[in-house]
């Protein structure tokens, strides 16, 4: 699809605003869910059912004084939160929201997702270093070690999906899940590669620094971790980046493993209602389907955070290097062998 440039810009603008608003909704949602999980009401004072709480929070953050520590590196200190938000938002550009509705559609978009994830670590690391505080520095160091350890397993699980699809293009990956031999939702990659899906979800938690992998900001040991020395809206940007990050990660999980924008039983639905094909309504339904699935995974992110305790550092490293990486590697080799034999013996056409 070749849209004129101003349309792409407008869609990009809409999507950025969507993610900005979604962050405040997710903050509210997280506080409510954590309240339910811990058997307390959660925010219920500001507005009906506490619904205006995130707006109150943001207003507070904007009006707070911006403090930067002495002997910090001012440029990098300001750069770090910007980097976090920018990279989190950029990944959103790669996600296909409906058939033919994607901002950046390149030959290598699956790799681009991995590349953006891998440079997202600089925000945390630089924030930790530039604050000139030992708590922040420890947080930044933990973050870079954690990211490097989990990136490998993440890349290998994406590689499994790429092997199945035979393409690095996210649009192809989504469409293939509707493709040959797919029956209803059984074509989704989660059923074709369950182990890779599980590994990807676990590593997505680690890459977004969400509990139980939130060692870079472990409140009990490191005060606030990498953002200890941040205040006001700079802290707000870290906060924003965290929520945007895990929401975008939910979108990526859905795109890679849960059929992306595809409706469940889309083929059956289309043959039952032929008028729906190529209509605007189908596009709207696809966007809604993607949103619903992503919202579910956003819920999973919150659910896990409030039910599982944080890993210890050596548990984190053991899980990453001694369990996830070998399993992911064996998984890839297995799938590669399977597809090679399939091609050699001519199974399934």
């Amino acid at each position: 699809m070749d849209l004129p440039l101003y349309w792409v810009a407008l869609i990009g603008f809409a999507i950025i605003n969507f993610f900005l608003v979604s962050a405040s909704v997710l903050v509210y949602y997280e506080r409510k869910v954590s309240g339910w999980i811990q058997n307390r009401p959660g925010p219920n004072r500001v507005g009906p059912w506490g619904f205006l709480q995130p707006f109150a929070d943001v207003a507070k953050l904007i009006f707070k004084e911006d403090i930067s520590p002495t002997a910090s590196s001012p440029f990098i200190h300001s750069l770090a939160p910007v980097l976090m938000v920018t990279i989190a938002m950029t990944t959103a550009a790669l996600i296909p929201f409906a058939r033919g509705f994607v901002i950046v559609d390149t030959e290598v978009s699956a790799l681009l997702v991995l590349a953006l994830t891998s440079i997202a670590v600089y925000g945390v690391t630089l924030a930790g270093w530039s604050s000139n505080s030992k708590f922040s520095l420890l947080g930044g160091l933990r973050s870079s070690a954690q990211m490097i350890s989990y990136e490998l397993a993440m890349g290998l699980s994406v590689l499994t999906v790429v092997l199945i699809t035979g393409s690095l293009r996210l649009v192809d990956i989504v469409e293939y899940q509707n493709g040959p031999g797919a029956w209803g939702i059984l074509g989704w990659n989660v059923f074709r590669a369950p182990i890779a899906a599980l590994i990807f979800i676990v590593t997505a938690f680690a890459e977004t620094n969400r509990a139980p992998f939130d060692l870079p900001e472990a409140e009990q040991e490191l005060v606030g971790g990498y953002h200890t020395e941040y205040s006001g809206m700079k802290f707000g940007m870290f906060f924003l980046a965290e929520y945007v990050n895990f929401f975008v990660a939910s979108f990526v999980i859905v795109t890679l493993f849960f059929g992306g924008y595809l409706l469940p039983w889309e083929d059956a639905l289309l043959s039952a209602l032929p008028g729906l094909k190529d209509s605007v309504l189908l596009g709207v339904l696809q966007v809604l389907s993607l949103l619903l699935k992503a919202a579910f995974f956003a819920f999973v992110f919150i659910w896990v955070r409030w039910t599982l305790p944080r890993f210890k550092y050596q548990q984190l490293m053991t899980l990453g290097w001694k369990m996830l990486l070998p399993i992911a590697l064996a998984n890839v080799v297995l799938y590669a062998l399977f597809f090679t034999f399939k091609a050699l013996l001519g199974w399934g056409g």
């Binding site: 681009l112 891998s118 600089y122 690391t125 870079s144 490097i148």
Partner: peptide, 28 residues
């Protein structure tokens, strides 16, 4: 050469330089 470009980001900027930075920060 999109593939080469992305791999450059993924490998050098995303992995090797993170390790460099890690070591520099660790030694302070």
């Amino acid at each position: 050469a999109a593939f080469i470009g992305i791999v450059q980001v993924l490998v050098y900027a995303g992995a090797i330089m993170v390790l460099f930075l890690f070591v520099i920060m660790l030694l302070n």
